[in-house]
Computed example of a mutant assay.
Amino acid sequence: MRTTATLAAALVRHELRLFVSLLLWLGRRTHQVRHGRAFGYARGEGPLMFGLAFVCVIESVTMSVLLRDLPVVHRVVLVLDVYTVVLVVGMHAANVVRPHVLDEDSLRIRRAAHVDLRIPIEHIACVRRELRVTHQRADGELGLAMGTRTTVTLELDRPVVHFTLLGRPKVVHLVRFHADEPGELVHAITRARSALSRTDQVPDPPG
């Protein structure tokens, strides 16, 4: 059983990753893309995140007016409100600077600072562009919607282990996620699978 301290540590690590993402976003950098090809997924949810941040700012101003005669309470609420706005913007920053990454032998699927799943190309049995706007939880399936949408579906011939935000392992054999350019990503994964298959079929040179 996971202790309260372990769960708290997991949440602290997540918030630290958000702050790192915010710094990367301000510096117009990405997180661990290296020589792979990045595929973004934040475009559709960006306006929603900034709208949420704007609502938080309005709420902060309103509370400042209501609590102006209670200076101690006002300062505490102001700190909490500012921290909330920073976290919301950090979530958007994490979506931007932590894209999906495809390289020669693996696909790295990410969602902000709380999902980072690396899938070997050889484990992908099928990939297709598939728009889904409703999702039901099912054993062995991982759904990473942006808003309510996923646009790419991966079927695996061998399960992989996904660790949740709180570190709990989950075995998955099907992954649904969103990409801003799903057609390009599906095509790139298909080409990577074909290239890997051709490499595996090349006979060893005679001794």
Rank of each mutant, 00 (worst) to 15 (best):
G140Y: 04
E104W: 05
E130H: 09
L107T: 06
K170H: 02
L174A: 13
V133A: 12
E122N: 05
D103N: 15
I109F: 07
V127P: 03
P159Q: 03
M146F: 01
R110A: 05
V127Y: 04
M91Y: 06
L165S: 07
E181G: 01
V101N: 07
V97D: 08
V82N: 11
A94N: 04
L154E: 11
V171W: 01
V175R: 01
E184K: 12
V79Y: 15
V97C: 05
D81G: 14
G143H: 10
L102M: 13
D180A: 04
R110P: 03
G143Q: 13
P169V: 02
T148Q: 13
H114N: 15
V88R: 08
R129A: 06
I121R: 06
L102V: 08
T151K: 09
T150A: 10
A94E: 03
P159Y: 08
V101D: 05
A125L: 14
V115M: 04
V160P: 02
T134V: 14
T151L: 13
V85Y: 12
V89I: 15
S106M: 08
R128Q: 14
R108Q: 11
G90E: 12
V101Q: 11
L80R: 11
R98Q: 13
T84F: 15
T153P: 00
I121S: 00
V79I: 15
L102S: 05
D105L: 07
L174P: 00
G147A: 06
V127Q: 10
P99C: 10
R128P: 02
V115G: 06
T151H: 13
D103S: 15
V96H: 11
L78M: 15
D139N: 08
L156R: 11
H114V: 10
P169M: 03
E155T: 14
R137V: 07
K170S: 03
V96E: 09
V101P: 06
T148L: 12
K170N: 04
A112Y: 05
I109E: 09
R110S: 00
N95R: 03
H100V: 11
L117F: 03
D180V: 01
I119R: 04
Q136G: 08
L154V: 04
E141F: 00
T164N: 08
D81N: 15
L165R: 05
T84P: 03
H135D: 01
H173I: 01
V101L: 12
V79P: 10
R128M: 12
R149Q: 12
E122D: 13
G183F: 01
H173C: 11
V97M: 08
A93S: 13
A125G: 15
E181L: 07
R118S: 11
V175S: 02
R108T: 09
D157Y: 08
V115N: 05
R176E: 08
H162C: 02
D157P: 06
R108A: 06
L166S: 02
I124A: 00
P169I: 01
Q136W: 12
L78I: 11
I121N: 07
R149E: 09
V161H: 04
K170D: 02
E141G: 03
R137I: 03
L174G: 07
D116Y: 09
C126M: 13
R111H: 08
T164M: 06
Q136K: 13
R137A: 12
A145L: 05
E184C: 05
V160C: 11
D180G: 07
E155S: 14
L102T: 02
S106V: 00
D103I: 09
E181W: 03
R128T: 11
V171A: 09
R118Y: 00
E104I: 01
L107C: 10
A112L: 12
V161Q: 14
G147Q: 10
